[in-house]
């Protein structure tokens, strides 16, 4: 309980330093931070495709 109180009351140290952000995925998050003057690196990433196993087998055989 006392640990939670401490965590709640003490701001993380990171907010006192200039932010440097690596954003993975949605480009709009990068844009939003950049417009506020935050240094951001965007990593283009998509969640893995969830495919029918039959399609996976076919792709392995044909591609």
């Amino acid at each position: 309980m006392s640990d939670m109180k401490t965590a709640h009351c003490t701001p993380p140290k990171v907010v006192h330093k200039p932010l440097k952000v690596v954003n993975i995925g949605l480009q709009s998050f990068t844009e939003s931070l950049r417009s506020q003057g935050v240094q951001v690196v965007q990593v283009n990433w998509r969640p893995p495709v969830n495919r029918d196993p039959e399609i996976d087998t076919l792709l392995e055989d044909l591609l």
């Binding site: 998509r46 495709v49 495919r51 399609i55 792709l59 044909l62 591609l63």
Partner: peptide, 8 residues
């Protein structure tokens, strides 16, 4: 069609 499905 293969690339469409591979890349999603």
């Amino acid at each position: 069609i293969r690339l469409v499905l591979k890349r999603g």
